[in-house]
Amino acid sequence: MKTNYLLPHKYKILGWILFIIGIIYGLVFACSGYDYEPIQIKVLSIFNEGLLHGNDLRLFEIIETGISSELASIAIIVGGLIVGFSKEKIEDEFIYKLRKDSLVWAIIFNYFILTLTIIFIYDLSFFHVLIYNMFTPLLFFIIRFNFLKLKSKSHEE
């Protein structure tokens, strides 16, 4: 099966490591009330409405800030993409179909859950939903894909 967007199988382990470290770091950060900032560096901020500090719009400035959330987010996203889109040991058309079906399932499931949270979660609590929803499509996809793979393995002759 030829696909042009899949990484070689050997990257999968790297993906899992990044993905899991990202999730753990992200959860620690979330549990600290989004306050755990051991790394402070100067970054380029291209757009800042300044909702928390007055209301002046600032464009393209260098600011110093904690980058815990950024590191965790990037690790989860990059790790998750690598896990979901690196080849299996034997990459064939059946695996391709499982991956595609899992993606469709994940998108539908994610937006179903999001719709429920829109209806039932209000005020600033919805902020948590927005944060988790950055990662849930990838997370649901990876869970569903691995679940289908396991299921196809367990039904032997």
Binding site: E88, D92, E93, F94, I95, K149, S152
Partner: peptide, 8 residues
């Protein structure tokens, strides 16, 4: 292909 594919 993989054995899972034949099985499926």
């Amino acid at each position: 292909v993989s054995r899972q594919t034949i099985n499926a």
